[in-house]
Amino acid sequence: MLEVRGLSKHFGGVRAVDGIDFSIRPGEVFGLIGPNGSGKSTTVNLVCGLYQPTAGEILFEGKDIAPVPTHRRLSLGLARTFQNIRLFANLTVWENLWMAENAPSHRAETRFLKRWIGGRSDARERITKALEFSGLAHRADDLAGSLAFGEQRRLELARALAAKPRLLLLDEPAAGMNAEEIAQLDERIRALQQQGYTILLIEHHMELVMAVTDRVCVLNFGRKIAEGTPAEVQADPAVREAYLGTAQ
């Protein structure tokens, strides 16, 4: 589904991502973990096009997506959420989801003018469904900025899903969540996998990663230090060293 080969991103002399390889199979939940500053978020930003790679290739469904501008990657089937929630705070919950309906994948359905004038009614059903799935139906008319933190996270996920992606990039979805919310998130990720989504999960919260992922890739200082099932990775001495330091 997604294949990353020798991917590098250097900021001046800083090698934020330094020649990593991994590949995600259709239908799996793939974890990308590592200590702070190990290059996880940079990798996501490379995959969704916010950064251009210094070197290496990103293949999505066998196609090199390096020349595809960010806003078109959504229609390829790539959607994401952000580590620090990025909603349109002064737009309503409804409008936030409406924006994702801008995806060219929906464009074929109606002509431009019809979408401009009556786009709402076309998108209505999909948005209503997405709101119900996220438990936000009662807040549809409220400004996104007025939502509680957990609700904002759910809305952001709903917005990413509104574009019907095939690969979903979740950048630290558990950040700032309490135990109960993390349990809900765990369920939600499993539910999404059941529905056929492929997921790239970037996360700090180890319990969640170990519980929901099929395979994990561990980064440290921009390099891949381990890859495998959660159990294999946990047993890897290099991973222990990266997280806990060397035993003297």
Partner: peptide, 11 residues
């Protein structure tokens, strides 16, 4: 509101 988010939803 947010150019990065706008790009990521396909604008």
């Amino acid at each position: 509101e947010d150019e990065v988010a706008a790009q990521s939803v396909g604008i």
